[in-house]
Design a protein around this nucleic acid. Structure first.
Length: 286
DNA sequence: CATACGTGGTT
DNA sequence: TAACCAAGTAT
């Protein structure tokens, strides 16, 4: 199964800039943060801009956090931009300007969790460690476990399985990691898996079992309209698109519910995404 | 461990 | 059209 997936990857992988040999660990780290819960097509142009503007962690660390938030554009979850800026600062001041290769050291940086730490260690440095994202979990669930989809959150059994499947050779492990992820992104997709073009269709436990429906617990559906997330998004959009500080009166226009809007502005300030200025004005953090 | 956290394309 | 989905993290 391993060689079939790796061979398939060799023939069908997308040409993504952060996968090229010349990609720096920093470029790979930036890509991983941007790709959290965000499609490749949307992250791609923003990644290009970021790497031109801030080619090193030091370069980003010297910028204002608000510049990072503004350059994040509409990627979503703007706290990622703030945390990436904070990570760059930590890398510049505590790690000699070099992106760490040790997963535990990476994991200690802001915005870097288990997945991103493993991804950077593996993809940037060839560290032999399982990289388990939503694509990988889905492929494992189907091909090995025989379930239509993975559990709502990563289980110990899944981590064990990923560790067992990981090739012993570090270089091979790195390709395996990215290949399984790519298979999940392009073929073994959530809604309409393209089993006719899957390199391991014959070995797939889910297919062999006749595609049984998922019976486990499902994750709660996300709401959007009328939520604080929507209001926060509107406030931040206004500040991103404004050059200087914005008067409170203008912020008031983005959402009619006073209590909710004020609560959201307060939470944005709490998060460090918004700076309250004298005179009742607001701006992205300097 | 469940929930909050953006955004826009696809079904 | 509402729901689902996209390389998760922090609390």
């Amino acid at each position: 199964m391993i060689s079939r997936v790796i061979d398939w990857y060799g023939d069908h992988q997308r040409d993504l800039p952060w996968r090229r040999p010349e990609a720096s660990p920093w470029g790979i780290l930036v890509s991983e943060i941007m790709l959290q819960q965000t499609p490749v097509a949307r992250a791609l142009p923003v990644w290009q801009e970021w790497l031109e503007r801030w080619p090193t962690p030091q370069a980003l660390a010297q910028a204002a956090p608000g510049d990072a938030v503004r350059a994040w554009g509409r990627l979503g979850y703007p706290r990622r931009a703030l945390r990436l800026h904070a990570a760059a600062t930590a890398i510049a001041t505590e790690h000699g300007g070099r992106v760490p290769s040790d997963p535990d050291t990476l994991r200690a940086l802001p915005g870097i969790g288990a997945y991103t730490a493993a991804a950077v260690a593996s993809f940037a440095y060839g560290v032999r460690i399982p990289v388990v994202d939503t694509n990988v979990r889905r492929v494992h669930a189907r091909a090995v476990t025989g379930a239509a989809q993975a559990a709502p959150s990563l289980t110990a059994a899944e981590s064990r399985l990923a560790a067992e499947l990981l090739p012993a050779n570090p270089a091979e492990a790195k390709v395996w990691n990215v290949a399984v992820m790519e298979l999940g992104a392009l073929v073994c997709t959530a809604a309409r898996p393209d089993c006719d073009h899957c390199p391991i269709a014959r070995q797939c436990a889910w297919r062999s079992a006749g595609y049984p429906a998922y019976d486990g617990p499902t994750k709660a559906a996300q709401r959007w309209h009328g939520t604080d997330r929507q209001v926060r998004g509107l406030v931040l959009q206004l500040l991103r698109e404004s050059h200087g500080p914005v008067p409170a009166a203008r912020v008031d226009l983005v959402w009619p519910d006073d209590a909710q809007r004020q609560r959201c502005v307060a939470s944005l300030i709490e998060d460090g995404l918004v700076d309250p200025l004298p005179g009742g004005r607001y701006a992205l953090p300097a």
